[in-house]
Design a protein around this nucleic acid. Structure first.
Lengths: 211, 211
DNA sequence: GGCAATCCATACTCAAGCGTATGGTAACCG
DNA sequence: CGGTTACCATACGCTTGAGTATGGATTGCC
């Protein structure tokens, strides 16, 4: 009986998953493959790909392995499904919104500020960066990173940089983004505070974006 | 008898470890704790912290677990010893050399170019970046990164930036460094070639270092 | 050359985690 | 309302890797 009280429910949709519903009724709805994938992404975001174990996940979901192996053939299959889900739904929104800004020169600063202010969706990306030794995640990360790099490159071209400069500036910018993820909420370097962070973002904009 | 032919010897000193001495005589010298630490760093650099298993290491060194547990009390102890060794001996050289350049304005470009051209010593750092979920590596990485950041910050101040700017520029620079490590020889993004890489480094210098 | 200390091999135990087999229960449908 | 399907529990086997026990071999030293 004990062990049934820590559950993850589907209504805590993608970006806001891994919310315990402590205190609410057990609401013993049966699970779908999607539930497992979402929960898997939550676990990955918090503890990394290495911590993705089926029995641990089952405990979190309030069921046993018997359930899991009905929905998936193997643990590997779950990982692939979760990664695919992340690649499909987890991204794009920001890029799409930015692309609709008319003035090309305002796109990059806006992009920087947006990304800086919603770091939550980037936790999965950060976790996957640490899991590049798992062969399954490499192609996914390669595709996602490549798409973002291309978006950045054209944005820099539209902001006035010559093609070679634009490519290199995009490389630099994206590397800074990736490095920042690692150094901050992965490693916990001297915990930068809010206003200091704002200043850092503006410094980035002033340094990396051509006037 | 087979299994004795793949060994790592101590003479393959730190940065050049993990060289098999195929073809040479078995030279059955007994091992020391140092040998295990060096071999561990080699394995970490190539396959990450997660791959650090004592039986695997023993196979590489041409011995069995019996040897290992004479030198170390546990696997965890080996990891700590290896990390300490890396923190002590593995770093500093570049920083020390750079600090001796008289003209402060020439220090940063020189630093960039040096770091860019000897990426080999940075493989351990890159591997450790992916292992920040292991609680043992976090403090080590925090110390090393902090030291480097401080060095960068003073270098930027000496290059003419005001203290707040210098700190933020150092953050940006170091994040770009970390991100580059991840995106390139961890993830294998569109494999940048040599001359393109040189151009990228010069672009970094032009963008990040104040004229 | 013999005795310690050092280093290593062999043979175990134990826990974790994946996957399987099979039976049980809840939902849906005719 | 009886049966089929979908979902889950329980109990097992198997592999991997950490750690232990103990005896054998090698080195240094007197």
């Amino acid at each position: 009986m004990a062990g049934r009280n820590a559950r993850i429910t589907k209504d805590t949709a993608y970006g806001y998953h891994t919310q315990m519903n402590v205190g609410s009724k057990p609401e013993r709805t049966r699970l779908s493959a999607e539930d497992w994938e979402v929960a898997a992404l939550g676990l990955i975001a918090e503890q990394g790909v290495g911590a993705l174990a089926v029995e641990a996940l089952a405990r979190q979901l309030g069921v046993t392995k018997g359930s899991f192996y009905w929905h998936f053939r193997t643990r590997e299959a779950l990982l692939n499904a979760a990664l695919e889900r992340w690649e499909q739904y987890g991204e794009r929104e920001i890029i799409d919104e930015i692309a609709q800004i008319s003035d090309p020169r305002k796109r990059l600063p806006e992009l920087f500020r947006r990304v800086a202010h919603e770091l939550q969706p980037h936790r999965v990306y950060a976790a996957l960066l640490k899991a590049l030794d798992h062969p399954q995640v490499v192609p996914v990360m390669a595709r996602v990173s490549q798409r973002r790099m291309e978006f950045l490159t054209t944005a820099y071209r539209e902001a006035g940089l010559a093609p070679p400069q634009a490519l290199n500036r995009a490389r630099l910018t994206y590397a800074a983004y990736v490095g920042f993820l690692q150094l901050n909420f992965t490693l916990g370097l001297p915990r930068i505070n809010h206003e200091e962070f704002e200043a850092y973002v503006e410094h980035m904009i002033a340094t990396l974006i051509p006037a």
